[in-house]
């Protein structure tokens, strides 16, 4: 039962991540990627703080300064860089292409883990990396168009 619960939770997460790019592209007909990033982070932090107060109240209350500094570093990498460029890519490449390319983030995590912590590369990881690169090449050479001529383009 617990296993099925875990799968269900993972599927809900997949739908949440998958819908984000599509909703962002829909919002970008009127609103800039920077504004969408700000609002999505404000809404997200309110919701996740509510969940944190429910499931990890002790940890929220006892968080250390060192942890906060590491979290700040994570925030710099994940939001002004990760999420903002995510939404910029949705605007210019479209939700489907942007999501597919951003999906390579685990490859970067693995690469950094190999480089920084000396983890070993296996044949399976190398094969996976090659498939990802081939996938990106296909997406990059796709000549179909993305509609970006919206209100913002008219203003800028």
């Amino acid at each position: 039962m617990s296993y099925l619960d875990g799968v269900s939770l993972a599927i809900i997460s997949t739908i949440g991540f998958g819908a984000t790019a599509v909703l962002a592209q829909s919002g970008m007909q009127y609103v800039k990627p920077t504004s969408i990033t700000i609002i999505s982070l404000v809404v997200g932090s309110i919701l996740v703080f509510i969940v944190a107060f429910i499931v990890e109240l002790d940890q929220v209350n006892s968080i250390s300064i060192v942890a906060l500094l590491f979290i700040l570093l994570n925030a710099v990498l994940s939001y002004p860089i990760g999420r903002l460029f995510n939404f910029i890519s949705v605007k210019y490449a479209g939700a489907s292409r942007a999501s597919s390319v951003i999906g390579i983030a685990p490859l970067i995590t693995t690469g950094l883990a190999v480089w920084l912590t000396g983890e070993k590369l296996t044949i399976i990881i190398l094969t996976g990396s090659l498939l990802i690169l081939l996938g990106i090449f296909l997406i990059l050479t796709d000549m179909s168009s993305v509609k970006t001529d919206n209100k913002l383009d008219a203003n800028n």
Partner: peptide, 13 residues
């Protein structure tokens, strides 16, 4: 809804 769906993604993950 972008913010809601992104936070659903992270939290449920």
């Amino acid at each position: 809804f972008t913010g809601i769906s992104a936070s659903i993604g992270v939290t449920f993950w």
